[in-house]
Simulated scan of single mutants.
Amino acid sequence: MKKLALTALVAAQPSLGITAEVVPFDGSWKEQGFLRLFSNDYVQRGEQLDVVSDGTVSLLWRPLDRSQRSAQAASWAWSVQEGVTPTDLTVKGGDDRNLAVYFVFVDPDRAEALAGGSARRILRERSARALIYVWGGQHNRGAILPSPYASQLRTKVLRGSRAGTHQETVDLVADYRAAFGSSPGTLVGLAISADSDDTKGKIVASISNLSLRN
């Protein structure tokens, strides 16, 4: 049986000139609630994160190490066994989604000062931008949407609300340019969220094999 060490693994792919670094779910991710009493259930199991959201919403946050901050692409597998109904992701207070993966960037000269900070603190930073990949909503796949909460957030829809299992590979640089019209700064943190508080629905889902590539 293969065992995944609960530290980041580095796998070189010489034929492609790509280095992939796995980001494990090793207990270093910390939950941050949007509303004090509304929290999801997360189980970090090394290579996989299990998520249950039952009329709740919160975000699981991990600051990145210096070696991970230059990532230009990412990949992961995700699965939704039970999810919420399609919503309009541009409407504040009506934008439930099954899963969201956040990539948070700041200006390079601010990265060290913000390293290790909470998602809430970093997203208050003037230079901060978050590229959010979403499973859910009623929009076309590939749509890039403004957030109803803050101008420095952009959502790209990868999957509709239907249950299933999928593997994703994303180009962070190209998607950032399409979303914000400029090149990304330094990647300082990742977050994962499930959101069911508006529809009062239930989400049972998981994310695994999350990796960053330079």
Rank of each mutant, 00 (worst) to 15 (best):
K3L: 05
L4A: 07
L4V: 08
A5N: 02
A8C: 09
V10Q: 15
V10H: 13
V10M: 08
Q13S: 04
P14L: 10
S15A: 15
I18L: 05
V23G: 03
D26Q: 04
W29C: 09
L35V: 03
L35P: 10
R36V: 04
L37A: 03
S39H: 12
S39M: 07
D41K: 07
Y42M: 15
Y42W: 15
V43A: 14
Q48V: 14
Q48H: 12
D50L: 06
D50F: 11
V52I: 10
D54R: 01
G55Q: 05
S58C: 10
L59T: 10
W61R: 08
W61N: 06
R62G: 01
R62D: 06
P63Q: 05
P63S: 05
D65G: 13
S67Q: 10
S70M: 10
A73R: 00
S75G: 04
S75I: 08
A77D: 01
A77S: 03
Q81F: 12
G83Y: 03
V84H: 04
P86I: 04
K92H: 07
K92E: 01
D96L: 03
V104W: 07
D107S: 15
P108Q: 14
D109F: 05
D109P: 09
R110M: 02
E112D: 09
A115V: 06
A119P: 12
R120E: 12
R120W: 13
R120G: 07
R120T: 12
R121S: 08
I122N: 09
L123N: 12
E125C: 10
S127R: 15
R129I: 07
A130C: 03
G137H: 04
H139C: 06
S147L: 02
P148K: 06
R154F: 06
V157S: 08
R162W: 14
A163E: 15
G164R: 14
Q167V: 00
V170E: 14
A174H: 07
A178I: 04
A179E: 00
G181C: 12
G181Y: 09
P184D: 15
P184N: 14
L187V: 03
A194M: 01
D195K: 02
D195G: 04
S196D: 07
D197L: 12
D197W: 02
D198H: 05
T199V: 12
T199W: 13
I203F: 03
V204Q: 10
I207L: 10
L210P: 00
L212S: 08
N214C: 13
